[in-house]
Structures are given as structure tokens and as C-alpha cells.
């Protein structure tokens, strides 16, 4: 992913060439969808949130200065979109998680299970639902294609080293939950 060219495209969008946003959308639609999907495991909702991110990019395009990476700026917006959604739907959040857990035990889980063919992965999916949002977020960001620790640090407003520690702690928490669930199975 060429960041310079991302910035060049976004600067054109800023100058009124809105069609160039289509190119950025094509480059990042899957990555953004993956970011939201890993957080909520709801494909429909993730698609809506991706849509909101691009509409916000369009609305606040004047604020893009081009001095940082477009990807980092976009993920700042994506995080805000995600937070706004979860804040608005806080009451329903527990239901969603429950639904998600149910879903994991049902069709989707079985369908993916056929592809994944592994009990460990099977369990891992169930464990993820128990992880808090911050840990989930840093793990998801570290998983995304082309995302470096430095980029994540820029997105989360912390140093590269601090990101490594966050990922380390998130993985430890994941492992604890994993072991706990494994013992029960």
C-alpha cells in the first residue's frame, strides 16, 4: 500500500476531486471491514460502520493536512465511528455479545469450523468475546495487513514500545481466558 500515493489521492479529494475517494475506498474497504468485523463479528454492522467512516472522511476532508499517513488519519476516524456506535448502543451491547456468542455456537461457527478444521481456533473464537474492547482493538490493529506497531502507536497516541506491551498484555489476557475455557471443555 503506497502511503504517499494515499496522501496524494486524499489531497485531491480535499481539493474537490471526490471521485478519488473511490480509489481509497477500494484500497481500504477490506481492511476497515476486517477491523470492525474483528471487533463485533457482525458483517452487516461492519459494512455500515465502513460506510460511516468514508462519509466522515468526505465530510471532514478539509481537516486532512497530508503531513501524516492517510491510513493513520483514517483509523482515527474509524475508531471514533466505532466508539460512537458502541456508546449509542451501550444498552444493547450485552445483548449483541450474547447473540454473537450464540452465533459462534451455531451456523456461522460450524460453517467456518469446516474451513478452519481446528479445535484451538474454535475455542479461540469463543474466548475473544470475553476480551475487553481495548485489548480486542490493539490485537485487531496488529493483525491488519500492512499495519506496523509504529502506525498503531500513532493511532492509539502512544509509543511503539507501549503498543508492544499492550499487545503482550492482551495476548496474556487472551491466553488466561483460553486456558480457563479449555479447562471447562
Amino acid at each position: 500500500m503506497d502511503s504517499i500515493s494515499d496522501n496524494a489521492l486524499m489531497l485531491k479529494v480535499k481539493d474537490g476531486d471526490l471521485d478519488k475517494l473511490g480509489l481509497l475506498f477500494e484500497r481500504y474497504r477490506k481492511i476497515l471491514f476486517g477491523f470492525f468485523y474483528n471487533m463485533n463479528h457482525d458483517p452487516g454492522l461492519s459494512e455500515d460502520l465502513v460506510q460511516n467512516v468514508f462519509m466522515r472522511i468526505l465530510k471532514y476532508r478539509g481537516g486532512f493536512k497530508g503531513d501524516g499517513e492517510f491510513k493513520v488519519w483514517m483509523f482515527h476516524i474509524a475508531r471514533n465511528v466505532g466508539h460512537d456506535h458502541y456508546r449509542k448502543n451501550k444498552d444493547r451491547e450485552t445483548d449483541e455479545i450474547d447473540n454473537w456468542k450464540d452465533k459462534l455456537g451455531d451456523d456461522q461457527m460450524n460453517r467456518e469450523g469446516e474451513i478452519e478444521k481446528g479445535e484451538d481456533l474454535h475455542l479461540l473464537r469463543r474466548v475473544l468475546g470475553r476480551l475487553d474492547k481495548e485489548k480486542m482493538e490493539v490485537l485487531t490493529l496488529s493483525k491488519l495487513e500492512g499495519m506496523k506497531y509504529k502506525n498503531i502507536g500513532d493511532i492509539l497516541d502512544c509509543s511503539e514500545g507501549a503498543v508492544k506491551v499492550k499487545v503482550f498484555r492482551a495476548l496474556q489476557a487472551l491466553k488466561r481466558e483460553y486456558m480457563h475455557l479449555k479447562e471447562r471443555v
Binding site: 471491514f33 474483528n38 458483517p43 479461540l124 490485537l139
Partner: peptide, 19 residues
């Protein structure tokens, strides 16, 4: 290993509706 498993978790493709 856990991270590898997590990273390997598949993510479905977004639908054409999104585009």
C-alpha cells in the same frame, strides 16, 4: 502461537452492497 492463531482467523469478504 496464540497470536498466529488469532491472525489466521478468517474474516469474510464485505458484500457488494457495501460498495
Amino acid at each position: 502461537a496464540l497470536k498466529n492463531n488469532f491472525d489466521a482467523m478468517p474474516v469474510p469478504e464485505p458484500s457488494q452492497n457495501m460498495s
